Computed example of a mutant assay.
Amino acid sequence: MKGYVYYSEKESVRNKAFIDDLTNESRKLGIELNLLVEDEQPDSDADFILFRDRNSERAALYDAAGFRLFNRAEVNRIANDKLRTFELATLLGVPVVPTRKIRSIDEINTYPCVLKTVDGHGGNEVFLCTSALDAASFFNDFHDRKLIVQPFIESGARDVRVFMIGKEVIGAVKRTGNGSFKSNYTLGGSVEKYILSSWQEKDAMTIAKAIKSDYVGIDFLLLPDGRWMLNEIEDPVGARSFYDTCDVAIAGKLIGYIKEKISGE
């Protein structure tokens, strides 16, 4: 069996340790796994492509060419569009942060609110606005992007990222922000292992089943009253926080899942 793991050039350097893990685990299962970067083309006889980029158009090209993608292009498209994520969760009956598209600050009814680019990730294009002046600054910085607005939800800068492989919950981590309302680990937040309740597992599994994902992270805000609300779906999902808190070899689980899926098709 032969496959590829696709990254942008920049992310291939940043994720070298994970790529090495994937390669080693593939070798154990008799799989030849090669790195595919930017405009490099896979061999036509490849059994699969593990797609680790936020480029649904490129993923769609591989889909159309007949390659088996993990995740497929439609998962990438939904996960990297926060408005589509909100619409999906609403249809599924999963609690979700209210989200709407916005074109001008005149459409903001109350402050504080949270403004985001529709396709941003890592918390870098998210801004808490307490006034029209704050909002105007955000609009100025991202005037050429699609934007959404959400109410500010008090969560104590805490959220939970659930890691899913297929329909199985592999584990979860609780992230807490450090001096910010953002909880992202890469922005300096702290992480700890989190044990999901049965109803929380059900919410995560409902989403993964609906989008037919192979490997995603699903982020929920933790509310003070014990409830939670879906915030984002991450594809590709980074596993640094998982490696630091959980004892599951996620690269091995993922490669084993891919082999099982390919062998059964």
Rank of each mutant, 00 (worst) to 15 (best):
L88C: 00
A89T: 09
A89L: 11
A89E: 07
A89W: 08
T90D: 11
G93A: 13
V94H: 05
V94D: 08
P95V: 10
V97A: 12
T99A: 07
K101R: 15
S104Y: 14
I105E: 13
I105G: 10
D106G: 15
E107S: 12
I108A: 12
I108W: 06
I108G: 10
I108C: 11
Y111F: 15
C113G: 10
V114W: 07
V114M: 08
L115R: 06
K116I: 11
T117L: 11
V118M: 07
V118F: 05
D119S: 14
G120S: 11
G122T: 08
G122Q: 07
E125N: 07
V126S: 02
F127P: 07
F127N: 09
L128A: 10
C129G: 05
C129K: 01
T130R: 15
S131I: 13
A132Q: 14
A135E: 06
A136W: 03
A136E: 14
S137Q: 13
S137P: 00
S137V: 14
F138R: 05
F139C: 07
D144I: 07
D144M: 00
R145P: 01
K146S: 13
L147G: 03
V149D: 08
F152N: 08
F152I: 04
E154G: 02
S155C: 13
S155W: 02
G156D: 02
A157L: 02
A157K: 01
A157H: 02
A157R: 01
R158S: 01
D159W: 06
V160F: 06
R161T: 02
V162P: 00
M164W: 07
G166C: 04
K167T: 15
E168F: 12
V169N: 07
G171D: 12
V173D: 03
K174T: 12
K174P: 05
K174W: 03
K174H: 10
T176W: 06
T176M: 05
G177P: 02
N178V: 01
G179K: 02
G179I: 01
S180P: 01
K182G: 03
T186M: 03
L187S: 01
G188N: 07
G189C: 02
V191L: 03
V191H: 01
V191N: 05
K193Y: 03
K193A: 14
Y194V: 06
I195C: 09
L196Y: 10
S197H: 04
S198M: 14
E201R: 15
E201I: 15
K202Y: 13
A204R: 03
A204C: 08
A204D: 04
A204Y: 06
M205V: 15
M205N: 00
T206W: 13
I207S: 09
A208M: 10
